Simulated scan of single mutants.
Amino acid sequence: MKPMLIAPVALTALLGACADMGANVDPILDGQPTAQFQSELSACRSLARNQSQLDHETMAAAAMGAGIGGILGKVDDEGNALGGAAIGALAGAAAGASEASDTRETIVLNCLRGRGHAVVN
């Protein structure tokens, strides 16, 4: 398979695999959960899942990774710019998806805190 085709397929698979990351956090509570905790946890997770994984920051990280990878691939005697760009784009997208996952986890925890739950992490 050519590098130009591999990159979009791998990027789609990567982002699909990360679709629920962060939103499925299991918060630690200081004390016993209230009667409405499970329904509010579900609502907070839903709110976090609605945050796009493929946002502007993830796209920018993928583009920056592609640029750096392309330059490094061109400089390497045995590499090529296209292959380097594809690998760089995947690395950048992975970094962006990881950041989006952290953001989703923060959304869940802050949402629960905002609803009055004593969330430790």
Rank of each mutant, 00 (worst) to 15 (best):
Ala19Ser: 08
Leu112Arg: 03
Ala43Val: 04
Pro27Gln: 09
Ala95Asn: 02
Gly83Met: 02
Ala19His: 11
Ala43Ser: 09
Met64Cys: 13
Leu29Trp: 01
Gly22Ile: 02
Leu82Asn: 00
Gly65Thr: 08
Cys111Glu: 04
Val120Ala: 11
Gly67Pro: 10
Met59Gly: 00
Asn110Leu: 14
Asn110Pro: 02
Arg45Val: 01
Ala118Val: 01
Gln51Val: 13
Val119Cys: 09
Ser39Leu: 14
Gly22Ala: 08
Ser52Gln: 07
Ala93Lys: 01
Asn110Glu: 14
Ser52Cys: 03
Ser98Phe: 12
Ile107Tyr: 01
Gln53Gly: 03
Arg104Trp: 11
Gly83Ser: 15
Leu90Trp: 01
Gly65Glu: 11
Gly84Pro: 01
Val75Leu: 05
Ala62Tyr: 02
Ala94His: 03
Val75Lys: 09
Leu112Ala: 05
Asn24Ser: 15
Gln32Asp: 14
Met64Thr: 13
Asn24Gln: 14
Ser46Glu: 15
Thr34Val: 03
Gly96Gln: 03
Ser98Met: 09
Gln51Leu: 08
Gly69Asp: 02
Glu57Asp: 09
Asp30Ile: 01
Glu105Arg: 15
Ala66Leu: 08
Leu82His: 02
Cys18Thr: 05
Val25Pro: 09
His117Ser: 10
His117Ala: 06
Arg115Trp: 01
Val108His: 07
Ala43Glu: 00
His56Pro: 00
Thr34Gln: 10
Ser39Asp: 15
Leu5Thr: 05
Thr106Arg: 14
Gly73Arg: 10
Ser46Asp: 13
Asp20Arg: 15
Glu57Gln: 09
